[in-house]
Structures are given as structure tokens and as C-alpha cells.
Amino acid sequence: PLDILFKELDEAIQEQQYKKAIRVCNKVLSQSVNDVEATQCKVLCYMYLGSFQDAVDTINKSGPLKDSFVFEKAYCLYSSAKYTDALKETTSIQSKPNNVLELEAQIYYKLENYEKTIEIYEQLLSQSGYSQSSELITNLCAVYIDAG
């Protein structure tokens, strides 16, 4: 029966019906506590709905999965303008993947720590995958403008 629920969940996500998707996630989780994919989808649905506190609550209640949601939790705190709390999450990560670096740069920008923001963006720009990123270059320009 779980496979039928996951089919339903996938369809709801494809149709961007996130509230419906959360209801399906809850059905899965009632049968399969701490189900990885259902928990991930539930967190993401709340984030896509802009319900960041609900996403954080879901993460905090996710038991053994909690540690796998550090990026998502930091993003939710960032989106709730809790920049110092968000930074505590990202700085707790030892070897930072690029998505964490991107987020950390955004947090530092909001905290008006332009030096740190520039440092991270220059580090990312030195990687081949980012050298053509117009969005990253736009952000770097914004930092230089605000830094004066």
C-alpha cells in the first residue's frame, strides 16, 4: 500500500499541490515512522508553501533523520530572517558542500558582513561550474554596491 501512496505523493508534488502532498506524507508516516522520503517531502512541501516554522518543527521531530536536514533547517531560519540562528546551523557543518556555501554567503550578506560574503563568492567563482553563473555574478555585484 505504501507504493500507491508514493505514487499519489509524486503526482501531488508534480502538480505543485503541496498541501495535498503533506496529507499523503502524513498517511505514509502513520504507517512508516521516520520514513526518509516522506519526511524529506513533508519538509520540502512546507518550505515551498513558505511555512518555514512548520518545516523546522517537522525537522525537529524527525528523530534520527534530524542531522540530515541541517541545510534545510538553516534555509528555513534564513527565510524567517533569523540570520544568526541560520549561521549557527551552517557553521556547524564541517566540510561544506556548495549549497551550504551559497546559503552561508546569503546569510552573511543579510548580516551585512560583506567581507565574508565576498570571500565565499570568490571561492565559488574559482570553481568551473560557477564561472559562467550570471546569478552569482549579479549577487557579487550587489555585495560590492552595498559594501560601498
Partner: peptide
């Protein structure tokens, strides 16, 4: 304020459910 993209949101992706369906 100058334009500033939310690059980190691009990494907020749903997991693949292919193996669960």
C-alpha cells in the same frame, strides 16, 4: 537595493520517489 538572487533555494529539491512507487 540591488538585485540579489536566492541561489540556495535551487538546492531545495524533492527527493526522487521512483524507487518507492
Amino acid at each position: 537595493k540591488p538585485m540579489f538572487f536566492d541561489l540556495a533555494f535551487n538546492s531545495c529539491e524533492f527527493p526522487s520517489l521512483e524507487n518507492r512507487k
